[in-house]
């Protein structure tokens, strides 16, 4: 039966029930998502700076200004650097740790797992605060330890190139747990028989990894990668709490820059136009995620 005819083949009263049941949720989403987005779209094609009064004339100049804005380019560059770095590091470290945890010889497996998963759902703001305390130039424990072992004590969050690296490290500390959890779930659900067959055929551990584990895990790794990428492209909280985009503009991400244009420059039109460009990128990524999910047919 074709998908589209399923609904129309239902008895009339079931069709009615089915429609009634989705009405509240649809209304809700129209009110809190669709309407605000349409309003933002409307605002983005108008001149509107809050400090200069009401909404101005209709034109596309916001989009032209924004595309030529070197500061947006800077924040886009920072966001891309941050996203690629954290996703690559988190996948590598997370997959490595998941593989180790999947080893049957590890007796304390559950204790390790329990500890490693703690940061996963911690509020990003608290993660940022914890690291600000640890990295504080005079009062932080990290620079004290470095001084004891005779290493230089950098200003982690106040040195242009180092600040971005610090944010990356903190993000890895926070989010690698997600990768561990997801990839470990993938690993433990792999069919044992394939490995047994491979052992009978005399496969080495390396061969088993290369020809069984990796190909079978690829879809899960891909899904985890895209989900993390979508989240990383929106990074805001960590930047706000750790550096406020500084020093200078060296750690400004797109989300943070849009926030600044809106709340500091009060430029409603321009910030909305930029938000829409970010939205476009995220929608493309989400589309990619859906394709992958469909292909792996793991979605229910």
């Amino acid at each position: 039966m074709a998908k589209s005819s399923f609904f129309s083949n239902l008895p009339k009263h079931d069709q009615q029930t089915a429609r009634n049941l989705v009405v509240p949720a649809m209304l809700g989403i129209w009110v809190v998502v669709l309407f605000p987005l349409l309003y933002a779209l409307y605002v983005s094609v108008h001149d509107w700076i809050l400090s200069q009064g009401g909404i101005g004339s209709f034109n596309f100049s916001n989009y032209f200004t924004v595309l030529k804005d070197p500061l947006l380019l800077n924040s886009a560059k920072n966001t891309v650097v941050l996203t690629i770095s954290v996703v690559v590091l988190e996948i590598l470290i997370g997959f490595g740790l998941a593989l180790l945890l999947n080893n049957k010889g590890i007796r304390l497996r559950n204790i390790y797992l329990f500890i490693l998963l703690i940061p996963m759902l911690m509020p990003p703001i608290t993660v940022g605060l914890i690291w600000r305390l640890l990295l504080h130039p005079e009062l932080g424990i990290i620079n004290y330890v470095l001084s004891v072992i005779g290493l230089p004590q950098p200003l982690w969050l106040a040195t242009p190139n180092l600040a971005m690296l610090t944010i990356i490290i903190v993000d890895v500390w926070h989010e690698t747990a997600f990768i561990i959890l997801v990839l470990l779930a993938g690993l433990t659900s792999m069919p044992e028989e394939i490995y047994e067959a491979a052992i009978i055929d005399g496969a080495s551990s390396r061969q088993k990894f290369q020809f069984i584990t990796l190909p079978l895990m690829a879809p899960t790794i891909l899904v985890a990668t895209i989900i993390r990428m979508i989240a990383a492209l929106k990074t805001y909280d960590l930047v706000y709490i750790l550096t406020r985009g500084g020093p200078g503009i060296s750690t400004e991400t797109i989300s943070y820059y849009i926030y600044k244009v809106f709340f500091v420059a009060l430029d409603v039109g321009k910030s909305s136009a930029m938000a829409f460009l970010l939205l476009l990128v995220i929608i493309l990524m989400t589309f990619l995620l859906m394709k992958v999910m469909q292909k792996t047919e793991q979605n229910y």
Partner: peptide
């Protein structure tokens, strides 16, 4: 919808 960047929603 869940993937939308919060900054795009919070302004409107």
């Amino acid at each position: 919808t869940q993937m939308l960047p919060p900054i795009a929603l919070v302004i409107p």
